[in-house]
Nucleic acid binder design. Structure first.
Lengths: 212, 212
DNA sequence: GTTTAATTTAACCAACTGGGCAAATAAAAT
DNA sequence: ATTTTATTTGCCCAGTTGGTTAAATTAAAC
């Protein structure tokens, strides 16, 4: 068994397994599980449709392989950002900067994940040890608490809410990209410059909101 | 033709058309266009499947009827909130309060809309006059500008960004509901109390972020 | 009451979709 | 070189899906 070890969006996949996984993640991301067709995945991989079943048995198994990879990639990326020993304000700055860059590389990721978890919530618990993210969250919470006692952060800030707010501000514009394009009549370039603009300003927004 | 005039989630639909539309919006919201099955819609409406085609011709037409209604309901709701002549801070408070209540009544709405617009971006321009929302946005922008000159709101706040931030904070938790349930291991009650908590605190968060 | 039009139903169909399989080809092992 | 194993292909299949249609039923018009 030739386990595929390169990143999903790598430009030079070698093994057949990896070629399939790459094509599959493209199609699943664009169309979702229900909208994706095994034939389209095969076409995009330049392979016979039966090969998908040879390597991954079923559409569901193939999807799980894609989803697990994406999920881990995303969570580990987020965890890394918070792992460094920084002040809360520095963490926030660092988070927005790096997270926006990650999402910029795969703009479909947020909506894809949100949607598939809504379709099949068991994906989350089946494919990932939820505890893993708890650790980082708890650390963030206690950091916030400390700085509240030090008079840096306002006392009425709930760390739980703060975490969710940061995530909302970071992720939502990507999930809502097609909507924004319609309402603000933006093209791809407008969207990109909006994001790089936000990459710099989101942290200020949040820090102003919570500083004592 | 007995045009259905009651709200989608009304409890006492009468005409067959309305019964179909209600069942259809339920199923489409839960499963999305690709995941929805005409048979399930018929079953949930307690009607023969052929009736769906008798009244709405095709799955796509039925979906459009559902989507158009939901889209208009949502946008008009949002517009109403901003239409009153309030200060920016008051508008923000009023927006979060009312918007959270609207979303609470239909928690699936955000993810549904985001997802379907990603699938078929033409839905937006085909089914709704985009200009309608421009007016309100422009008014909000000039209100913000005024209060910036009056020294109420920080000068470095970009109204465009502010609008998007408010939307992100309001909508994202609903779109991410299944994700949050998994990560925070919340049940339905936890989610509801989180939202009512946020309904009160989101405005403070934003106002602190932008006040001069 | 009878005719006419609208509504509802059951049965059916063609296209699509995920998946299976046996034969063919290529690669490894001996 | 030959056997054995792994990979790839073409072809097929059964179940599902959106959609049709002719007949049955109900409601409206006369």
């Amino acid at each position: 068994m030739n386990r595929a070890n390169n990143i999903i969006n790598s430009d030079t996949p070698q093994s057949t397994e990896a070629v399939i996984l790459k094509a599959a993640s493209e199609v699943f991301m664009e169309r979702g599980f229900d909208g994706a067709r095994m034939q389209e995945i095969a076409d995009r991989a330049g392979l016979n449709k039966a090969l998908l079943h040879y390597y991954y048995r079923s559409k569901e198994k193939l999807f799980n392989a894609v989803f697990e990879r994406v999920l881990i990639e995303m969570i580990e990326g987020m965890i890394q950002i918070f792992e460094d020993n920084l002040t809360v304000f520095e963490s926030i700055r660092s988070f927005f900067k790096k997270h926006q860059e990650i999402l910029m590389k795969n703009k479909l990721l947020p909506l894809f994940m949100l949607n598939e978890i809504q379709r099949a919530p068991e994906l989350l618990i089946d494919l990932y040890p939820v505890d893993r993210i708890q650790v980082v969250r708890k650390k963030f919470y206690s950091d916030v608490n400390n700085e509240q006692h030090m008079g840096i952060i306002r006392k009425d800030v709930d760390p739980h809410d703060l975490f969710l707010n940061i995530l909302s501000l970071s992720v939502f514009p990507f999930a809502a990209k097609p909507l924004l394009k319609g309402f603000y009549s933006m093209d791809e370039n407008d969207f990109q410059s909006m994001i790089s603009h936000r990459k710099e300003n989101l942290a200020d927004f949040v820090i102003n909101a919570i500083k004592a």
